Simulated scan of single mutants.
Amino acid sequence: MLEVSAIRAGYGGTEVLRGIDLKVDAGEIVAVLGANGVGKTTLNMVLSGLVKRDSGAVVFDGERIDGLPAPEIVARGLIHVPEGRRIFPNLSVRENLECGCYRRAGAARKTNLERVFATFPRLKERHRQSAGTLSGGEQQMLAIGRGMMGEPKLLILDEPSLGLSPLLVEEMFALIAELNTSGLPIMLVEQNVVQSLQLASRAYILENGQVALSGPAETLRDDPELKRAYLGL
Rank of each mutant, 00 (worst) to 15 (best):
L197F: 01
A212F: 05
S182R: 12
L206C: 09
P185A: 08
A200M: 04
S201K: 11
V194D: 10
E178K: 14
G183Q: 14
P216T: 14
S196A: 15
L184F: 12
L199K: 00
F173S: 02
Q198I: 02
V211M: 07
E170L: 14
G183S: 12
A203C: 14
L188S: 02
S196W: 01
G209L: 14
A174M: 08
A212N: 00
P166Y: 10
S201P: 01
G183R: 13
Q198T: 08
P216Q: 13
P185Y: 06
Q198L: 13
V189E: 00
P185S: 10
T181F: 05
E178Q: 14
N192A: 12
P216K: 15
I176E: 05
L188P: 04
P185R: 08
S214M: 15
Q191T: 10
L197S: 03
R202T: 15
Q198G: 11
Q210K: 15
Q195Y: 05
P166R: 14
V189K: 00
G183Y: 13
G215R: 04
E171I: 02
L199F: 04
F173C: 05
G183N: 14
E207K: 14
A203W: 01
A212D: 02
Q195F: 07
N192T: 09
I205K: 00
G215N: 11
L184A: 10
M172E: 02
L184K: 05
A200G: 04
Q191N: 07
S201A: 13
S201R: 11
I186D: 03
A203I: 12
L213E: 06
L206E: 05
V193R: 00
E207D: 13
V211A: 12
L188F: 05
P185F: 07
N208T: 13
V194Y: 08
S201I: 06
L197P: 02
V211F: 12
S214Q: 15
V193N: 00
G215H: 09
L168A: 08
Q195S: 09
G209Q: 12
L179R: 03
Q191P: 08
L197K: 01
P185T: 03
L184H: 03
L213I: 13
V193D: 01
E171W: 09
N208S: 15
E207F: 03
P216F: 10
R202F: 09
L175I: 11
L167P: 06
S182C: 04
L199P: 04
L168K: 03
S196P: 01
T181C: 02
L184I: 08
P185N: 11
L199G: 07
Y204I: 08
L199T: 10
N208A: 15
V211N: 03
P166W: 06
E170W: 07
L206A: 07
A174T: 00
E171K: 11
L168M: 15
S201F: 00
N180Q: 11
Q210C: 14
F173I: 07
N180A: 09
Q191M: 08
A203E: 00
P166M: 13
G215Q: 05
Y204P: 09
N192E: 13
M187P: 02
E207Y: 06
